[in-house]
Amino acid sequence: MWSELRDLREGQDLGTPPRGGEPVALVVDGKPVTVPAGSSVMLAAATGRCPVPKLCATDTLEAFGSCRVCLVEIQGRKGYPAACTTLVEPGMVVTTQSPRLHELRKGVVELYLSDFPKEDVPGGWSELHETLQQVGVTGHPYGQGENHLQAPVDDSNPYFLFDPAKCIVCSRCVRACEEIQGTFALTIQGRGFASQVAASQGERFLDSECVSCGACVQACPTHSLVEKSLFEGGYQRAQSPKA
């Protein structure tokens, strides 16, 4: 279902903002692609219709490089650079699909799912679900572990709510608040596994410096930040059939 809904979106998300430099020619998955200098490999891949899976990248925000799903191979370079933060160079030869890349992407996405409500995996239509389908992952091998699934929902704002159980800490909301709205109301609090999105000094959204502009809601790839109007009769976390 998500694919039809996504088709309603205007245009394709190129992953990183467009640039206006001189044309640079490179090869992505064997196809020649020309994009302006200063563009990311991710944008070049999307332009060449070889979209790379992504989560923390969107073309309304500057590249961030945190989700590690967009790893690619570049001839002559060590390791697996992130397509969003790597800039194109003339003659670059990029591979976006390989068994090794699939293995790594699958490993990363499984980590996301190990701290995500399993009831929300089937049938969802967020960008996360699009990425799950692209990478071909529906579960994870870690069993029950430490998680944020019981963190309380913040529904203090009249227009939207924040369900931290679905948050993948990609910082798109934080960056939207900063880069698009210039409000700086959101941040990441804590470090390591405890890192969480927080409004102002860990306050409720309504009590924070949030101006309810909605930029964070639009930027969220998992519907962790989501409009209340979508839920008739109020928001309820999905329950597993057993419970």
Binding site: S66, G145, E146, V169, S171, G192, F193, S195
Partner: peptide, 14 residues
């Protein structure tokens, strides 16, 4: 971990 990238943020706990 600074909490930015997922392999480090979640992988270390797993």
């Amino acid at each position: 971990s600074c909490g930015k990238c997922t392999p480090c943020r979640i992988g270390s706990t797993r």
